[in-house]
Design a protein around this nucleic acid. Sequence first.
DNA 1: GATACCAGCTTGGTATACCAAAACGGTATC
DNA 2: GATACCGTTTTGGTATACCAAGCTGGTATC
Lengths: 220, 220
Amino acid sequence: MSQMQNVERQLREMILGLEIGPGERLTERWIESRFGASRTPVRAALLRLETEGLIGRDGRGWTVAPINLAELGQIAVYREAVEVAAVRLTAALEDRGGVDVIAAMLDSCDAETPREEWHRVGMDFHIELARLSGNEFLLRAVRDAMTRLSRARWLEVRDEKALGRAWAEHHAILAAARAGDADEAARLLSAHIAGSRDRLVTSLHDDRRGLRARGFAVVE
Amino acid sequence: MSQMQNVERQLREMILGLEIGPGERLTERWIESRFGASRTPVRAALLRLETEGLIGRDGRGWTVAPINLAELGQIAVYREAVEVAAVRLTAALEDRGGVDVIAAMLDSCDAETPREEWHRVGMDFHIELARLSGNEFLLRAVRDAMTRLSRARWLEVRDEKALGRAWAEHHAILAAARAGDADEAARLLSAHIAGSRDRLVTSLHDDRRGLRARGFAVVE
DNA sequence: GATACCAGCTTGGTATACCAAAACGGTATC
DNA sequence: GATACCGTTTTGGTATACCAAGCTGGTATC
């Protein structure tokens, strides 16, 4: 694997894992010494992460993207557009066997499963559902949206009940898609995305002081 | 303006203007000498154009993205999802004055207007309509899609009648949006995108031999 | 004549040196 | 004590040298 991919992957993981906090400044020299790569692959990695929206430019320098509550609302609208389109395509497929694979993925989580795994499966549900549509652009759109949401979802304070509700909603969406009921799947998915957004924004808004106390930049 | 932005902009224009043909190979050294910049900004520009889908990797090297007919179909589905969402938001706005600005832009084209300008306005219509929605993600999605479609639309053989029809359809969509009729605007926009796709794919498919004779890679 | 192999060249990947601009810090002045 | 100014340091932008992998063309061998 090339140094560029190496740096890109590790840096992305550090950002998504909040090892580098939202709003933190990055210097190419620090990354260079941190990962043992020279500035050329470091710069390449930064350029890629910039297009993913995980980092941005602050004047001449680089900054880890802050948590942006307004952006979360816009992403929800975007997600609804592309995910609903994807699930409608999936529900119209001849062979909807892929739905069962996703259901099995959901069922691999139980009370013993670590929170990290729930987090990953919750995102992969949406990504894999988009993949079933067979449309590369819808898939990429969902993947990008989930990447941007990842940190916010990780910071969300979710109780046991909320996890169970999301799990049930996911299964209901799959059931409608499996049955070929595009309208019902679309309706359920829209409601699911809107509900997720509401809980997410409310949770982060209520907790914004705590987040800032941890050194995280939060934009409202 | 930095060398990177310089190279990126010029290279993009050369690719979109078909001065560098679809499928053509690119070497960093050629670009370096062609634009008088060193490899560092050249590589940065290539990385950005790669994320735009205008160039891709061919093993170790770089290749201008071929014209891909299957991709055109997928983009149409993607466009429909995001553009319909955008126009619905726009139709629901309190202040829909921006619609008239777009209408004026359409009306700036007449029989004397060069084809290049029609091409640009035809794309900007969709981009500006998405901008009115106020959603950054929908806007970016439409802009990206139009960038990817740009070369194909330029290669399409369009008669006077087709241009007039597109112009009329654009105005009808604006009228519905201005009236706040989201359903009608969505219906018209969906039909417009589907019709555009059909004409585009048919035209390029019929002309694929001619395109290949010009040295353009065409994937079906 | 075909094929296997080798040398040279091309090319992307990487490291690094140099530069200008901006940020920082300290000092002198009011 | 505040502020304006200047030198130092830091930082991103750029150019370039070097490397390894892969391609090319030619040659030698069968």
